[in-house]
Nucleic acid binder design. Structure first.
Lengths: 259, 259
DNA sequence: CAGTGGTCTAGACCACGTG
DNA sequence: ACGTGGTCTAGACCACTGA
């Protein structure tokens, strides 16, 4: 029974686990600038005192911040702040709509095509379906405040695509449409590279052929591990930057040679 | 004292923590193909049985795999495999030398310049030094099996650069040289974007001006949180891909608008 | 409803770092 | 030498999944 939690960290008691509340409180302390990069976080003992929580719970909260790259821990030394928090990285990385809104910009889309066709073998492999299966493929131009910034070439397994045919994909997000059918996005894999704009992409982006584009190939998985989508997004090079943090204590970014 | 560990997971007992050994054993099981994406991991209880470890320790091992994006957990449901492991992402992302070796390629470098000069204000901010301080700046062309693939523009605080002057930076890694002076790399922040090759970069890379490049701006921190290096690396677009995995349960990759 | 993972406690010993 | 974070145990209750 989690009762009154300390004066300093985490006041309200909802259904939220104590370690999540403490992590949020610490994250806020860093975000507010009260603790700057290089400063020291309170130690486990101090946090136990302040919150009344057991050490394991306190450590779980700190582990969350460490995984987010906000703090750094070393055995024997005090935990120190590495950087101010930036984004909620998950949904912003997957959903153009969520990302744009988070930027304070107005997301839009222009549908170019949405058709059912036989699947490309490479895409079939990513979606873990048969080489002779059908997929829905979609081409959309994504707009930021009305300006085209990205061309999206997406492929969906038949079962998923069928749910999208009736959705208004110029207004809303694919993921929002799928969520209405109870399909939640749980994880994504990404491959990022730089390429020159081909003629077709250039025309859709109102850029010259050969313009540098940031290419993001993406496979998105549902909660049950099933592939939902494979997409090849091509961003105008001047419209996007990817941020990554990595440390000895964990990172999701890896670099490798192209296939 | 961790004594005999179960028949199945983790045999040898060195100074390695039990949860790390169990995580490795599970990772190997996935890597070997014995467990494929979609398959179920043994439950906590089964792993406790097999290893003789307490539940907390078992859970720590599984948490490691989850943070690596290898497995997915949901309350109430069995833990399932998401993907096969790929790389050790940490050192490969920071060190060209380590990355190249890991690829089975032969890394090289051609030093263009290493000079001490006054610092650019933007770089001063990244390195957390004064606007009037001096830095060492280095330009190197990085080679993969003798072929130029990247131009590196790096800046080091005076104290760090002084350690590099006498090192052979055409043969070895900067980080290897720093490690010899007791300076260990602990974390890095990265900004990734796509740009067109400028004339100078193009010449060094033996490419045409305007060729798409993947740009990786990087700030590297030592164990004590001190910035060691700020670098602007420009890769031939056809020579590099970045891999990322993210899930609701943690990710280090975030997307944002350019400054 | 049985089994799973998620959370939490209260204690203990250890390796490491810093004064 | 002391305090720090890292590891580990043994037990408990809960929320949720899935048959």
């Amino acid at each position: 029974m989690v009762k009154a939690v300390g004066k300093r960290y985490g006041q309200v008691d909802q259904g939220v686990p104590a370690h999540v509340r403490l992590a949020s409180a610490l994250r806020d302390t860093i975000a507010s600038g009260e603790l700057l990069p290089g400063d020291l976080l309170p130690g486990d003992a101090a946090l136990m005192d302040a919150t009344g929580l057991a050490r394991g719970t306190v450590r779980q909260a700190v582990a969350t911040l460490r995984a987010e790259g906000l703090v750094q821990t070393r055995q024997g030394a005090r935990t120190s702040v590495l950087q101010r928090p930036r984004l909620q990285p998950f949904s912003e990385l997957l959903s153009f709509t969520a990302w744009a809104r988070q930027q304070g910009a107005n997301p839009g889309a222009r549908m170019v095509e949405l058709v059912r066709r036989s699947v490309d073998p490479a895409v079939a492999h990513e979606l873990r379906i048969g080489d002779n299966d059908l997929v829905w493929t979609m081409v959309r131009v994504r707009l930021l405040d009305g300006v085209p910034v990205m061309v999206e070439h997406a492929a969906y397994p038949e079962r998923i695509g069928a749910l999208l045919v009736d959705a208004d994909l110029e207004a809303g997000s694919v993921y929002a449409a799928l969520a209405e059918h109870g399909i939640e996005v749980a994880s994504g894999h990404h491959r990022i590279s730089a390429i020159a704009a081909e003629a077709a992409d250039a025309e859709l982006l109102r850029a010259r052929p050969g313009t540098p584009l940031l290419r993001q190939e993406r496979t998105v998985f549902a909660s049950d591990g099933t592939p939902i989508e494979h997409s090849d997004d091509r961003w105008r090079g001047d419209s996007i930057v990817l941020d990554a943090v990595n440390s000895v204590q964990g990172s999701q970014l890896a670099r490798r040679a192209p296939d």
